[in-house]
């Protein structure tokens, strides 16, 4: 019999329960008003990007009802996408995704520098070296602050002049303007 020839499948082994992972949401995700909002933000990274992605994410997150019209869902998705709290949470998740993709980027870079035939081989090496031994540039910034006694004395001198002139009965406002002091030995 044909059915008897068919090898019997072995019993599938049981999957071991996953270890509990204490992944925590960031403060912006936690600040969202409901789990549906958090699910909406997470769904944005799983649905296929493009037109209608936000609506799909809203549906995954159980927004709306089965009877909701496409227009209603589009409105719900649009409101969610323009909610400041959701936008903050998206920004937080963006950072997480970028940081989480760093190991893959490094792996890809490692493969790139091991392939001398790759067109960007030299560029990859340059990127690695730039990060390991960054080119040193020295910036010499000279801040000149004139705090010579003569400069500091100017305000005091003017005040003293005013005091002495008042004592001598001279109206300071009638005095001719002061000549600017010339630097000693200056050109």
């Amino acid at each position: 019999m044909k059915s008897a020839d068919k090898p019997k499948r072995a019993k599938r082994r049981e999957l071991e329960p996953l270890e509990p992972i204490d992944a925590k949401d960031g403060p912006k995700m936690q600040a969202l008003p409901s789990d549906r909002h958090r699910a909406f933000v997470r769904a944005l990274y799983t649905v296929r990007p493009g037109h209608g992605a936000a609506v799909k994410a809203a549906k995954i997150a159980a927004f709306g009802t089965p009877q909701s019209s496409p227009q209603s869902m589009a409105t719900i998705a649009s409101r969610l996408m323009h909610d400041d709290r959701v936008l903050d949470a998206i920004r937080e998740e963006d950072e997480k995704h970028i940081r989480a993709s760093a190991p893959r980027a490094i792996t890809a870079l490692s493969r790139l520098i091991e392939d001398p035939r790759h067109k960007d081989h030299a560029r990859g090496i340059g990127m690695v070296l730039d990060r390991v031994h960054p080119a040193e540039t020295q910036h010499r910034l000279t801040v000149e602050h004139d705090a010579t006694p003569a400069y500091k004395a100017t305000a005091d001198v003017l005040e003293r002049i005013a005091q002495l002139a008042a004592k001598a009965g001279i109206d300071v406002s009638k005095m001719p303007p002061l000549i600017e002091a010339k630097p000693v030995g200056g050109s």
């Binding site: 002049i161 001598a168 005095m175 001719p176 002091a181």
Partner: peptide, 15 residues
């Protein structure tokens, strides 16, 4: 003091 232009130091010396 009232007619000659001078530096602050000169003015102070006269005063």
């Amino acid at each position: 003091l009232l007619n000659c232009e001078m530096t602050a130091a000169e003015r102070l010396r006269l005063l």
